[in-house]
């Protein structure tokens, strides 16, 4: 018999994971929108954000704080990782991408892949630091436990369907960020400048827009969203590892392409879709097929509708 409650439960899980994927996907889509680069290092920046958060937790000894203190701790990790990932992503652009602005897109892409490897190895090194939170750092490559500062209780009481504070945290963090980002892009001078640079960088520079600084700001904002996502992801899944950026990054990249690369609502829609598809596949097929299904979606989209669901391929008047 079909169990409706299981379906609802999987949808909740799918939407929570989907919101996290969406937040990472926005980082891909913003950077692609402005310089047509798939920033392959983005997933690894996200991963380093999680390591930064765990380190912060260890250094400050957050686990021994009271419940109120831990709420402050979560806020501190969110802000800390956002700033860290924003700065890191900005630095990647400054060091590895900016000099290649006038080169071929391929050179830029190869540089991004290189950055991805560097960040991943940085994560491997980081996990080997002799700290308690990294289990003494004896097994650098091993997955690390990320303490569940957010209690795993059911907010719905005895109900079969579980909504935990971790689910609530996911939505409480991601939705305001997405709203704020949308307002920023549509209403502020920087947001308008970002759209102008995305549409025509030469015309933007002829209007006095400092194109490189606007691109740098885009990298910072995209990275910061990845940082927020990394903390939420870690508190939700309670395990981190130096390779987590690859999978999360590919999910998010697929989400961005599915929604229409370059489109912010597309990234959110794509993220939610991929999150739900993963949850359904885990439940009704088998976990081992889930990645296959996600990549099939990516391949099919690239073949049949490369502009994605919300992306436009319309030509503009010249």
């Amino acid at each position: 018999m079909f169990d409706f409650e299981v379906l609802v439960q999987q949808l909740i899980t799918g939407l929570s994971n989907g919101m996290i994927i969406a937040l990472i996907a926005i980082g891909y889509t913003m950077v692609y929108g402005i310089i047509e680069l798939i920033n392959f290092a983005h997933g690894d920046v996200f991963m380093l954000g999680a390591f930064f958060a765990l380190t912060l937790m260890g250094v400050l000894g957050m686990e021994s704080w009271g419940p109120g203190g831990q709420a402050v701790g979560v806020a501190a990790m969110l802000v800390g990782s956002a700033l860290f990932c924003g700065a890191l992503n900005w630095s990647l652009d400054r060091v590895a991408y900016r000099a290649l602005r006038r080169s071929s897109k391929l050179a830029l892409l190869v540089s991004a892949i290189g950055c991805s490897f560097i960040c991943m190895n940085l994560g491997l090194f980081w996990g080997g630091l002799p700290m308690d939170v990294f289990a003494g750092g004896v097994a650098a490559a091993a997955p690390k436990d990320f303490p569940a500062l957010v209690p795993q209780v059911n907010l719905l009481g005895e109900s079969f369907i579980r909504i935990t504070p971790a689910d609530a945290l996911v939505f409480a963090v991601t939705i305001p960020l997405m709203v704020a980002l949308t307002l920023m892009v549509n209403r502020t001078n920087l947001g308008r400048a970002m759209r102008a640079v995305a549409q025509d960088p030469v015309a933007a520079s002829l209007m006095g827009i400092p194109v490189d600084r606007v691109i740098g700001a885009t990298f910072f904002i995209g990275g910061a969203l990845g940082g927020f996502a990394s903390v939420v992801y870690s508190l939700y899944n309670n395990t981190i590892g130096f390779q987590m950026g690859t999978r999360a990054g590919l999910d998010a990249f697929t989400a961005a392409v599915l929604g229409g690369i370059g489109s912010l609502p597309g990234a959110v829609l794509g993220g939610l879709t991929i999150g739900c598809v993963r949850a359904m596949s885990d439940q009704y097929l088998e976990t081992r097929w889930t990645n296959t299904i996600v990549f099939c979606i990516l391949v099919l989209i690239l073949i049949f509708r490369p502009s994605g669901i919300l992306g436009s391929s319309r030509k503009e008047k010249v």
Partner: peptide, 12 residues
Amino acid sequence: QVPEGRRVFARM
């Protein structure tokens, strides 16, 4: 400069 071909931001 007013650029050649106008180059207005079409989606704004």
